[in-house]
């Protein structure tokens, strides 16, 4: 086995190890079917051991990465909007 083969096998081993580690850190995978404002939306939420979570909405392609620093002062909207924030 020459040096190139050794390097290739080492790379494969590391890649495989990382994949296993990623799977191991996945604590929960929840499939949530949410109904919002009369529309059906399917959201897949993945939570890892680091506390991050991501969700993929099959209708909206949305992802949520809450990180670890959550912040107060912002909440899900309710009722009619007072103003719109768009690009200005």
């Amino acid at each position: 086995m020459n040096a190139r083969d050794t390097a290739r096998r080492t790379t494969a081993a590391v890649t495989s190890g990382l994949a296993v580690a990623a799977l191991a850190t996945t604590a929960t995978v929840a499939l949530v079917v949410a109904r919002a404002d009369g529309a059906d939306a399917t959201t897949t939420t993945t939570t890892t051991s680091s506390g991050d979570s991501s969700s993929t909405d099959t209708n909206d392609q949305s992802q949520s990465d809450t990180g670890s620093s959550g912040s107060s002062g912002i909440s899900p909207g309710s009722g009619s909007a007072d103003a719109t924030s768009g690009g200005s």
Binding site: A34, A39, D57, D60, S62, S64, D65, T66, S69, I74
Partner: peptide, 25 residues
């Protein structure tokens, strides 16, 4: 068009916008 939220931004529901609230930008 995919959406990522960070640092406690509320998880998103699908929002249906009333016609009267639509703006064109």
């Amino acid at each position: 068009g995919s959406v990522t939220t960070l640092n406690g931004w509320p998880t998103e529901d699908v929002v249906r916008i009333d016609a009267e609230q639509v703006h064109e930008i």
